[in-house]
Amino acid sequence: MMDETKKNAYRVLNLPETATREEIHAAYEKLEERYSEIRYLGSPLWDMAAEKRELIQAAYDELTREEAPMRVQTVQEAQEDPEPGDSVSRRLRTLLNRNELDAAQALLEQQPNRENDPELLYLRGMLAWKRGWLDEATQSMDAALRLAPQNQEYRTGREKLTGGLPPSARLRQGIKDRQTRGACAACLMECLCEGLCEAICDGC
């Protein structure tokens, strides 16, 4: 008799309870890719994706426990409260790590040198990126790099500015493969709300 934990694990991986090890591994890889960390860069939903990844990991570990040891779960970074005595940069970074974007924005706007300090420009770019404002993020980070071209952190941050990486070629192909061409799909679309559907389709 299969216990409830195992049944749940199969459910999480969208598999029947008769799935083979190969199928389990394939399903795990597919879901890992679907919710991969890199796809949620710059997305406010990164926390939901992280929860999903943990669920998938736990389900996979449960179903493959006999042959592989349990993986160590990712430990979230300790999130300290910003102290008033901390430097502005450190307080901003803490607020950004905690996704408190409005508080970070307010603190940034209080800084008189925010237009010519590369660190503040970089953090303004990070803030804009977290909001999904890619244009402003690009401009701020470019300005930070002009003032401090040797800074490796700024350079890496600028290179990451993609607003969520596109799904890999495999995932994109999967989406396309799931769609199959209909007999007269193009003409059906064309005649939406024109009341001439049958007349046009007859000629397909």
Binding site: L45, A49, G164
Partner: peptide, 8 residues
């Protein structure tokens, strides 16, 4: 970028 974030 909007397409990718919407898809994610």
């Amino acid at each position: 970028s909007s397409v990718n974030l919407a898809g994610a």
